[in-house]
Computed example of a mutant assay.
Amino acid sequence: MREHLDCAVLATPSNENYVAGLPGSHAGGRLLIHLLKVEAGAEEGRALASTAMNLRRYDVCLLQVHPANLSWVRTNLQAARPLLTTPVIAITRDLRAAALDDLHKLGVEDFLREPFCAEELRARCERLLARQQAKVYIKHIESDPGGSALSVGEAHVTYQEVGAEHGQHPTLGANNMPVSVLESYAAAAAGESSGTSLRAAKTQIVEHFETAYIKAALHRHQGNIAMAARSVQKHRRAFWALMHKYKIDPMPYRAMGRNLPMPCGTGKMPANFSEG
């Protein structure tokens, strides 16, 4: 759990009087709220977009929404979607369910009703950041640009960067694995409103792990299935069965291997190899 969270509450012409009382330290110093004014001269419909860069220094953006400024919020969220990376929590008043659903579709991650409770806001921020971190984790595992896989060392650095992105320093387990990343994923799965079961969450994380592990082994041995299976102490048939299960094609890794010098005594010679 983070020692403290930094939230920015956006001050607009329609809510300056209300948000003026929010900045400060809350929840025993564990929640810090900062006032962030819309940049002067910003277009009416792009005020949030013009502030997107400044919002990156904060964990969460708080946005007050009520019937009087609902149209302004909708327009600005639509314009800011390609630029806004900071998660948004709306502090709402007198909004109908249809309006809340619309805001969610426009990118609002969570909602609080006025008057907000600092402890509740802190808890919602923690849950939101855990979900964001889990999404980044899954994205890194699933990404395989150009048909290649990350090596084990590269993947480890990536996981470290995921934790650092939220100001965290992952605690390494006995196998040098970043514990906080898996904890964040577990917290996100358990906190889903749909109630993801333990079995389903565990199955998903095992599938992602096995996929990344097999791809890394194939990458290391340039697509040689026998050598990759031997290196991970797996029978060749069982290794091939996992490749078939996850639809992993060894050909891209073999193509990469043709462009690399082959160590003496390892693997087979390429079919087009000729002496002399």
Score class of each variant (00 low, 15 high):
residue 242 L to R: 14
residue 189 A to P: 06
residue 171 T to I: 14
residue 48 L to M: 06
residue 244 H to A: 14
residue 56 R to Q: 15
residue 27 A to V: 08
residue 30 R to C: 01
residue 244 H to I: 04
residue 266 T to L: 11
residue 174 A to V: 07
residue 90 A to C: 11
residue 258 R to M: 05
residue 203 T to S: 12
residue 244 H to R: 12
residue 222 Q to C: 07
residue 251 M to S: 07
residue 164 A to G: 11
residue 165 E to K: 11
residue 272 N to G: 06
residue 8 A to N: 04
residue 37 K to I: 02
residue 53 M to I: 13
residue 161 E to I: 08
residue 198 L to Q: 13
residue 139 K to N: 15
residue 64 Q to K: 04
residue 200 A to I: 01
residue 78 Q to S: 09
residue 241 A to R: 12
residue 56 R to P: 02
residue 243 M to I: 08
residue 53 M to L: 14
residue 195 G to F: 08
residue 170 P to K: 02
residue 104 H to C: 12
residue 80 A to P: 04
residue 164 A to W: 05
residue 14 S to D: 15
residue 229 A to Q: 07
residue 49 A to D: 02
residue 155 A to E: 10
residue 3 E to D: 15
residue 216 A to C: 08
residue 202 K to E: 11
residue 180 S to Y: 01
residue 240 W to L: 10
residue 6 D to A: 13
residue 94 D to P: 03
residue 202 K to P: 01
residue 40 A to Y: 04
residue 240 W to V: 11
residue 82 P to G: 07
residue 90 A to E: 04
residue 186 A to I: 12
residue 176 N to W: 00
residue 102 D to C: 10
residue 188 A to N: 07
residue 166 H to I: 14
residue 177 M to K: 12
residue 137 Y to G: 00
residue 246 Y to H: 15
residue 135 K to P: 00
residue 122 R to A: 09
residue 269 M to C: 06
residue 71 S to I: 12
residue 55 L to T: 04
residue 68 A to Q: 14
residue 114 E to H: 09
residue 244 H to W: 04
residue 156 H to N: 10
residue 106 L to W: 00
residue 1 M to R: 13
residue 19 V to D: 07
residue 51 T to V: 15
residue 231 S to H: 09
residue 189 A to Y: 02
residue 210 E to D: 13
residue 200 A to G: 01
residue 268 K to A: 13
residue 39 E to L: 09
residue 252 P to Q: 06
residue 225 I to G: 02
residue 94 D to M: 05
residue 253 Y to Q: 08
residue 194 S to I: 13
residue 121 L to F: 02
residue 146 G to T: 08
residue 248 I to T: 01
residue 99 A to D: 15
residue 127 R to E: 14
residue 209 F to P: 04
residue 275 E to V: 09
residue 65 V to E: 03
residue 263 P to D: 03
residue 147 G to H: 03
residue 120 E to H: 07
residue 180 S to I: 08
residue 44 E to P: 09
residue 216 A to K: 07
residue 72 W to Q: 15
residue 150 L to Q: 11
residue 91 I to C: 14
residue 183 E to K: 07
residue 81 R to D: 07
residue 232 V to R: 05
residue 75 T to D: 14
residue 14 S to P: 10
residue 174 A to R: 10
residue 140 H to Y: 09
residue 102 D to K: 05
residue 2 R to Y: 04
residue 274 S to P: 01
residue 252 P to E: 07
residue 190 A to D: 06
residue 218 L to R: 01
residue 222 Q to P: 00
residue 136 V to P: 00
residue 110 D to E: 11
residue 220 R to C: 03
residue 85 T to K: 14
residue 95 L to T: 04
residue 168 Q to W: 02
residue 209 F to V: 12
residue 2 R to N: 11
residue 78 Q to K: 09
residue 170 P to H: 01
residue 189 A to S: 15
residue 259 N to E: 10
residue 193 S to E: 14
residue 208 H to W: 13
residue 229 A to N: 08
residue 270 P to A: 13
residue 274 S to C: 11
residue 205 I to S: 10
residue 265 G to V: 03
residue 234 K to M: 14
residue 80 A to R: 03
residue 22 L to C: 05
residue 237 R to W: 06
residue 247 K to N: 13
residue 137 Y to R: 01
residue 240 W to R: 10
residue 166 H to P: 01
residue 223 G to I: 06
residue 238 A to N: 13
residue 48 L to F: 01
residue 186 A to N: 13
residue 104 H to G: 12
residue 29 G to H: 04
residue 96 R to G: 14
residue 270 P to N: 09
residue 231 S to Q: 05
